[in-house]
Measured scan of single mutants.
Amino acid sequence: GSLMYASIFGNVSAIIQRLYSGTARYHTQMLRVREFIRFHQIPNPLRQRLEEYFQHAWSYTNGIDMNAVLKGFPECLQADICLHLNRSLLQHCKPFRGATKGCLRALAMKFKTTHAPPGDTLVHAGDLLTALYFISRGSIEILRGDVVVAILGKNDIFGEPLNLYARPGKSNGDVRALTYCDLHKIHRDDLLEVLDMYPEFSDHFWSSLEITFNLRDTNMIPGSPGSTELEGGFSRQRKRKLSFRRRTDKDTEQPGEVSALGPGRAGAGPSSRGRPGGPWGESPSSGPSSPESSEDEGPGRSSSPLRLVPFSSPRPPGEPPGGEPLMEDCEKSSDTCNPLSGAFSGVSNIFSFWGDSRGRQYQELPRCPAPTPSLLNIPLSSPGRRPRGDVESRLDALQRQLNRLETRLSADMATVLQLLQRQMTLVPPAYSAVTTPGPGPTSTSPLLPVSPLPTLTLDSLSQVSQFMACEELPPGAPELPQEGPTRRLSLPGQLGALTSQPLHRHGSDPGS
């Protein structure tokens, strides 16, 4: 009898404990919600809404976190579960008819179910419309201010047509639940991603989709105040780019002037030289400038040598048109050559190039014969006009050509200096018209024969001689050997007369 009593008592207590286990969990969670309300000092109306929603959600799901349970299964099984949970929507909604099984599984994985109690606001006026909503159960109302403009029910759709707008718009009203509602919502990016994977279904979906109420604000059109608020930074940046392009296009129409201050000032006329910023005076940081632009901040801005204009002085008759350009485009679109090309026009420029290279940067340069637009006047290309890779490749080509020119210049200078040193070592320090008596009659020769300089066969020296023939050397430049009979510069000019005159010897006659 005691054994029977113990078994009955144990079973009854276990049954009672299981009955009250759900209630215990409910009270535990309710205590957490109330502690949250007390800690954050939530006001009474919002506090009442929180408690009511918790009670309804507990009775609806029995305190089970559906998302946590669903995430515990593998992905393939999750797709089947989501397809079952959203079967009513996918079967009865017209846009989803005719979709393949794979497309429906992908869509079912992207849908999220939302449960809303009465009085809950789903979308506020001015919120971004980031999702498309399908009503599965219940009814909602749409308000503009305090005026109800629409009441939607089961199988209705609200949001915005995503295929017509590249960016999400703003809501033009509040969406509030009238009863307990079940909503299926899919985010904008998720829907577009699935439709991109199934393009054959995309056309059918957009053609058959009928949005019951379009929440997009109709005033959000390009150029409206609301649109400016939504895309303020983007609009200002776009206007700045367009104004920069218009100014650079105007600059290219004036090829007669070359400016070292950047493309923003290349198009300024002579009357605007004294102004601080020219056409860019209202925004000094709008356009890029070269490193020399920092010198323009000092006094005497109108007389600054940074602004270059072609000189009108005539060229000498024998002067060549100019050196070879550094870039391939210089032959086609440049009416002034790079300062480095002028360094190779003569030997005198070679000796004085490194010492006063900055001073020569603004000297007169030889002109190319074609009066085409200036290379320095070409505006900086924006990322939309020329690819970045093209600019980098041009810079690399320019750097390689500069290296080759520097190597060639160093070799030419070394060769010229070597020839000058050899000339100085071969010439005796001094010569006299009267020579010392020699031991015999073989001493009648006034000077030792001097062998002429070897013929220069280097390509670089031939180019130097060509430049010497075309360029007029300055007075202080050293002379180079030329073709024809060679003669030492330090010898007297009348050596031929010395050989014809008898030598005057000093000596005593033994017979006297």
Rank of each mutant, 00 (worst) to 15 (best):
S171P: 03
C181R: 02
C368G: 10
W206T: 10
A131I: 03
L473R: 05
E160W: 02
S345T: 13
Q361E: 11
P481W: 12
E253W: 10
S259E: 10
V434D: 07
R404N: 01
I157N: 06
P310E: 08
T372F: 06
R408W: 04
E392C: 15
R360W: 14
V427G: 12
K170Y: 09
A260S: 08
L215A: 01
S289I: 15
E319N: 14
T407E: 05
G169A: 03
G145P: 01
F201A: 07
G323S: 06
T212F: 01
Q501E: 14
G256H: 13
S283Q: 05
T130Q: 10
L375D: 09
P475W: 14
P339C: 04
A397K: 12
P288G: 13
A433D: 09
D396R: 06
N377W: 13
P492Y: 11
V416Y: 05
S348I: 03
G438I: 07
E295H: 13
R245H: 10
V434W: 09
L326R: 10
Q423M: 09
L191S: 01
L375R: 09
E392V: 13
P373I: 06
A469P: 07
S451N: 13
E257G: 10
S432I: 12
L375F: 09
I157E: 03
F311M: 06
G126I: 01
V391F: 15
G476S: 08
G269F: 05
S462F: 10
A177H: 01
R385I: 05
L326N: 05
R137H: 06
Q466R: 12
Y362A: 10
Q463A: 10
I378D: 06
L209C: 10
S272F: 13
A497P: 09
L365H: 08
M424W: 03
P263Y: 09
A343I: 07
L129K: 01
S139N: 15
T179S: 10
D196Y: 08
P305K: 12
P339T: 10
T248A: 10
T252V: 10
N155C: 06
L143S: 12
L398I: 05
L448M: 13
R246I: 12
P321K: 09
H504W: 06
P492A: 05
I140F: 01
R404Q: 05
P502E: 10
C181I: 08
I157T: 09
A266G: 12
L453Q: 07
R404C: 12
N338W: 08
Q237S: 11
E392I: 03
P387R: 09
G440P: 13
S345Y: 03
Q423E: 06
S382P: 01
L461V: 08
S341Q: 09
W206M: 05
Q463P: 13
R385V: 13
G346T: 06
K250T: 08
D329Y: 08
Q418D: 06
L191T: 03
R394P: 12
Y133M: 04
P310H: 03
A469H: 14
F201D: 13
G223W: 12
A477G: 10
C470K: 08
Y133D: 02
P502V: 06
I151C: 03
S341M: 11
R367Q: 08
I378Q: 13
P481C: 10
S136V: 09
G145D: 14
S313N: 12
M327K: 04
